[in-house]
Nucleic acid binder design. Structure first.
Lengths: 130, 130
DNA sequence: CGGCATCCACGAGGATACTG
DNA sequence: CAGTATCCTCGTGGATGCCG
């Protein structure tokens, strides 16, 4: 997820998969969702985001913020005060996305243990053939 | 286990984001969804998948397949016939995931033009300050 | 047919430092 | 405070070749 997406390898995966892929590409990048979630609570400042999204670097925060803004998922408001103050806020579109993301969360939570068990079983069967 | 992991880089982003991130990580990798969609139609063979998921390499197909199988999203059935025959089939859990993925598709389609316009506007305003 | 192993290219993203 | 710029690492995934 860079400002200049040179590697747009996403082509026609499957007729039905295209739109999904599109969303996934937009939401991917490991930080987008975190930022979206943090901003979903209400207007939030740059530094606040930096602290809210654990582990993100200044660079990636800026980059991801720009992308989200570009896609119309976040609005950027600059207050020309002496200590600069910038606030980010999710748009209605992003809020809708957030809602559907919640479905995914739900799915993840419901099957978390099942998946985990599946992994353990798989690993046991494939890493310890003895 | 000298293989490289396709896209399982789960981390702690934000308390609320964790589960989402977990799903996203599992579904990311650019091929998982395509494979899931192709397999959702019913049992499908390796070569069929290779053709169904446009642009995927043999390597990535195998890798992603393994990950999906490991997570219990796909079942792998080997028929010990003379020309080897392996069939992959989505599990109920994966089918549920597929359903929620459809919500995302819906979101993407509903806001596709909006987002596209937002991008154009953003680019116009930021790349051509004149 | 259905893989796995190897080599390699590229770009996402971390660390660090500087600025308005 | 809110970025921007630069360097560098390393994971992701493409290409190719061999094997059961």
């Amino acid at each position: 997820m860079s400002q200049r997406n040179t590697g747009v390898t996403s082509q026609a995966v499957t007729a039905e998969a295209c739109p999904v892929q599109e969303v996934l590409d937009r939401v991917s990048g490991k930080w987008s969702v975190g930022i979206l979630v943090a901003a979903a609570q209400g207007p939030i400042r740059f530094t606040e985001l930096e602290r809210a999204v654990t582990g993100i670097s200044r660079r990636m925060l800026t980059l991801t913020l720009r992308n989200l803004e570009r896609d119309g998922l976040l609005t950027r408001t600059v207050y020309p005060t002496v200590p600069p103050r910038v606030e980010y806020e999710v748009t209605p579109v992003a809020r809708e996305l957030y809602e559907t993301l919640l479905r995914l969360t739900d799915w993840a939570e419901r099957h978390r243990t099942t998946i985990h068990r599946s992994r353990v079983a798989y690993d046991a069967e494939h890493a310890a053939p003895a």
